[in-house]
């Protein structure tokens, strides 16, 4: 069985936010107006922010004696996700390959999952999405659709929750290609957009159940840690500590 996982090497991450931009274009994340963004309604499936987020003990210090650390944060795709446990209608669920998915056609917009997620990876569509000018002409046409099912980069209606899916449409396309070519699908045929674009090549993606995969090997590194390990979510995004 495949268990998709991501390793992010913070030593290599330059906090360029390329991952956020790639994600935005791959997944048709709605662009909110500046005043809405100031209210805290911007949607960034992959966010880059200073870490610790709310300095309590770790003080970044005064210039020039300062040390600012950044964290890039996709969805953790937890093995024990708090979000799917609270969803009343199974709009969010974990599939066989460990991906935590979101069905926009089912979501009732109660925002219990956004409240329950300790990582804040879930975003709510406070208003109907709008794209201006050429942005509207270059939406990603990919979507995962079925009866009562709408996932991936499909344009979301207002009032539903959305989140990082590890670019599930890419997985579907890679599978379909392998099938069309009549061969077995290999785990290295698929990476999410943020992994593909990463400037510092800080992101690795692969199958955690394959003992030979890069992610499995890196997960054994002494530098490896997971975010908020104490909340018992067992994330499948593994960070490598800055040296």
């Amino acid at each position: 069985m495949t268990r998709w996982a991501m390793v992010i090497d913070l030593d290599k991450c330059v906090a360029c936010q390329g991952c956020s931009i790639a994600c935005r274009f791959e997944n048709n994340t709605p662009v909110v107006k500046p005043n809405e963004a100031l209210k805290g309604r911007a949607i960034r499936w992959n966010d880059v922010f200073p870490f610790p987020t709310n300095p309590l003990e770790a003080d970044p210090g005064e210039y020039p004696e300062t040390k600012q650390r950044y964290l890039t944060r996709p969805c953790m795709h937890c093995d024990n996700p708090p979000c799917i446990k609270v969803c009343p209608v199974q709009a969010t669920f974990r599939d066989d390959e460990g991906l935590v998915r979101q069905n926009y056609a089912r979501c009732i917009g109660c925002r219990f999952c956004t409240v329950a997620c300790p990582y804040g990876v879930r975003y709510f569509n406070w208003a109907a999405p709008e794209w201006e000018g050429s942005l509207a002409e270059h939406l990603n046409p990919d979507r995962i659709e079925g009866p009562g099912d709408l996932e991936g980069p499909a344009v979301r209606p207002k009032g539903v929750v959305e989140k990082c899916t590890f670019c599930i449409q890419r997985l579907h396309k890679a599978r379909a290609r392998a099938e069309a070519e009549g061969r077995e699908f290999r785990a290295d045929e698929y990476v999410p957009a943020c992994v593909q674009t990463c400037t510092g090549k800080a992101r690795y993606f692969g199958d955690l159940d394959d003992p030979e995969s890069t992610v499995t090997l890196l997960a054994k590194s002494p530098r490896a840690f997971r975010l908020l390990e104490d909340v018992g979510t067992h994330p499948k995004v593994i960070y490598l500590r800055e040296g």
């Binding site: 969803c87 009343p88 209608v89 199974q90 089912r106 979501c107 009732i108 917009g109 109660c110 925002r111 709510f124 569509n125 209606p157 207002k158 009032g159 539903v160 929750v161």
Partner: peptide, 17 residues
Amino acid sequence: FDMGRPDRVLFVFFYGR
């Protein structure tokens, strides 16, 4: 009032977990 999609309120009974 609080629901983003009040039109789907009956989903709670159709697909309740």
